[in-house]
């Protein structure tokens, strides 16, 4: 892929062409593959497990993309591979147009400044032996060369941004509630003004009222700092609240993507449909009248994915072709795309 240095400083435009070139996405993933080797058997033979298979994803400026799917669908692995916390076995990852797939050592640490992560469990993502100030200062100390005064000022500023007080800076994590800890984790993630923050089930561990506060906080911070989010979640209601676009993963593959309203109102993939029918509706009458699609069976063993469409083993509409042929990506009316023979 073109390294950014080759990109002309002023984008060339054909005379008379429309003004907007498609902007360079903040993060872009192409054909991402992640394969784990599982040790099996007494002789230490390994079995490949393809946790992520050919995933394409792009996240625009100030955009929030939701990534949903059951546990084990590979959504967390995708997020971690995007941040280069797990080595991808194939595909390309670009951050602000820069190919970071093969970066190592110092260069990789350098780009980490632009991409940060908020983890699911706010109880284990903060070092219990460190006061809050030390945790939040970690990215500052790693990436910026601040004087003592600047550092202190920045810490206080960050605490206030996330709705805490500078007086909490010298407290230990155990002195905070889950929601407060997640605020601290968010402060740490945005401390060095990253371009992209991957939120891995960032609100799943919190109770519902706290979830809302944290979601609002994430939105406020996005508006203020111009951050893009990859929001990994299994809770579709949460994703609908915060994301503009959604990608649905099943067994390591993205089966459907689309703008939030289209995907929620007219899901194109039977799996998306099933996921949506599991979301409780606010009105009891509509909830009763709705037809629930209950998937039978479990997700297939990822070390031995079914041939053809990987969803055919559980799909209520499965046809003969589904068992043989992998469905191609097809555009959907209203935006996005789907991989399903029904829409082919």
């Amino acid at each position: 892929m073109t390294p950014p240095a080759d990109r002309p400083a002023v984008p060339l435009r054909k005379p008379g062409a429309a003004v907007a070139d498609p902007p360079v996405p903040v993060a872009e993933v192409e054909g991402l593959d992640v394969e784990f080797r599982l040790r099996r058997g007494p002789l230490g033979g390994t079995v490949p497990l393809r946790a992520v298979r050919g995933v394409d994803l792009s996240i625009g400026e100030r955009e929030t993309v939701g990534l949903v799917g059951e546990s084990g669908s590979g959504k967390s692995t995708t997020g971690r591979a995007l941040l280069r916390l797990i080595e991808p076995t194939g595909g390309r990852i670009r951050l602000d147009g820069q190919d970071i797939t093969a970066l190592r050592g110092e260069a990789l640490r350098g780009v980490r400044r632009k991409m940060q992560m908020v983890f699911q469990d706010p109880y284990s993502s903060l070092d219990p032996a460190m006061v809050v100030a030390e945790s939040i200062a970690e990215p500052l100390d790693t990436h910026l060369d601040l004087t003592r005064e600047q550092r202190t000022a920045r810490l206080a500023e960050l605490m206030e941004h996330v709705g805490l007080s500078r007086r909490h800076l010298n407290r230990y994590p155990y002195e905070f509630s889950g929601g407060q800890r997640q605020r601290i984790a968010i402060a740490r993630a945005v401390a060095v003004n990253p371009r992209l923050v991957v939120c891995d089930e960032a609100v799943s561990a919190l109770d519902v009222s706290t979830q809302n506060q944290i979601l609002n906080l994430l939105e406020d911070i996005q508006a203020e700092f111009g951050i893009s989010y990859l929001f990994i979640a299994h809770d579709l209601a949460v994703v609908r609240h915060i994301a503009q676009r959604v990608a649905v993963m099943y067994l390591g593959e993205i089966v459907e993507t689309g703008p939030i309203d289209r995907l929620f109102d007219q899901p194109a993939h039977p799996y998306t449909e099933a996921l949506l029918s599991a979301v409780p509706l606010p009105s009891p009458r509509r909830q009763r009248e709705r037809e629930r699609i209950v998937l039978t069976g479990e997700m297939p063993d990822a070390t031995n994915p079914p041939p053809g469409c990987s969803f055919h083993t559980r799909c209520p509409y499965a046809m003969d072709v589904c068992r043989v042929e992998v469905p191609a990506e097809t555009p959907v009316e209203g935006g996005g795309s789907v991989r399903c023979h029904l829409r082919g």
Partner: peptide, 12 residues
């Protein structure tokens, strides 16, 4: 612990 992964993700 996640805080070790967090630290790696920061680039420490």
């Amino acid at each position: 612990e996640t805080f070790i992964e967090a630290s790696r993700s920061i680039g420490t």
